[in-house]
């Protein structure tokens, strides 16, 4: 379970998160929608401590993410993350991209790491691309590679930050399908997304972000069918 209490985040004097309370139980798929600049990415970064926080707390399975005593490198293995930019390691083949962290972070042997990597790449439909370098892969394939790379650490949670926003429209589907597959397999997911159909069809809940607060959070039916907040109504009118 991910528990966020009273989270506040500043960049200098700019307050980006203004007191976020959010609990994500195991197995839930939560989509986060909202206008650009409302703090969605920043929230994800605060969950796995890629950004420091100024007030409040984030805990993952009872461990305080931002406590000095927390072994953050160990904790991050529980929290897979996929970014808008694919960030494939260009000097490594697809297999090596995925095998790297199991080997150096988890201390697996080379052979074990390669097995894990091959399995994960198979899982995201890249079983025939093991020995290909990222520059020979399409954007959609590189994003699936990034998903496989995160999965290879056997995370219990996956954080997606607009995983499809940088893709050509015709490549969005394959990545969404992979995310859908993970959701069906029971992965706990927090997905920042601009894909309203994904948010509606796949998520258990949808959170609407507005200027650093969660203005509305509910089931997709309620969020899309009966939005209460005026901002959300405006937002939905614009994205439709």
């Amino acid at each position: 379970m991910i528990e966020i209490r009273g989270l506040e985040k500043y960049f200098g004097t700019l307050q980006v998160l203004k007191g976020i309370d959010l609990t994500v139980p195991k197995g839930e798929v939560l989509s986060i929608v909202g206008a650009s600049g409302s703090g969605k990415s920043t929230l994800l970064y605060c969950i796995n401590a890629l950004e420091e926080i100024q007030a409040g707390s984030v805990s993952v399975d009872g461990t305080d993410v931002h406590a000095k005593s927390t072994d953050i490198n160990a904790l991050r293995q529980k929290l897979g993350m996929v970014f808008q930019q694919w960030n494939s390691f260009p000097h490594l083949t697809a297999l090596e991209n995925v095998a790297l962290s199991p080997r150096i972070v988890k201390g697996k042997t080379k052979a074990e790491a390669r097995d894990i990597a091959a399995t994960r790449l198979e899982h995201v439909g890249l079983g025939d691309k093991l020995n290909v370098y990222p520059n020979a892969l399409s954007g959609g394939q590189q994003q699936r590679l990034a998903i496989a790379r995160a999965l290879a650490m056997e995370p219990e949670y996956m954080l997606f930050d607009e995983a499809t926003s940088a893709l050509d429209p015709e490549l969005v589907g394959e990545v969404l399908d992979t995310m859908r597959l993970l959701a069906e397999e029971g992965m706990t997911m927090i997905c920042v997304t601009h894909e309203m159909s994904f948010a509606r069809d796949v998520s258990d809940r949808v959170a609407f972000f507005h200027q650093g607060v969660i203005e509305e959070i509910n089931t997709p039916d309620k969020i899309f069918g009966a939005p209460k907040s005026e901002h959300l109504q405006k937002f939905l009118a614009n994205v439709r």
């Binding site: 890629l50 490198n73 991050r76 970014f83 808008q84 930019q85 260009p90 962290s101 150096i104």
Partner: peptide, 26 residues
């Protein structure tokens, strides 16, 4: 890129592993 380094850290790599396995080769 900062994003590349965040991706490395998000996989559980330490600061030094990120330098050694990501920043140095790239």
């Amino acid at each position: 890129s900062k994003s590349m380094r965040r991706a490395a850290r998000s996989l559980g790599m330490s600061y030094w592993q990120d330098l050694r396995y990501v920043v140095l080769p790239i």
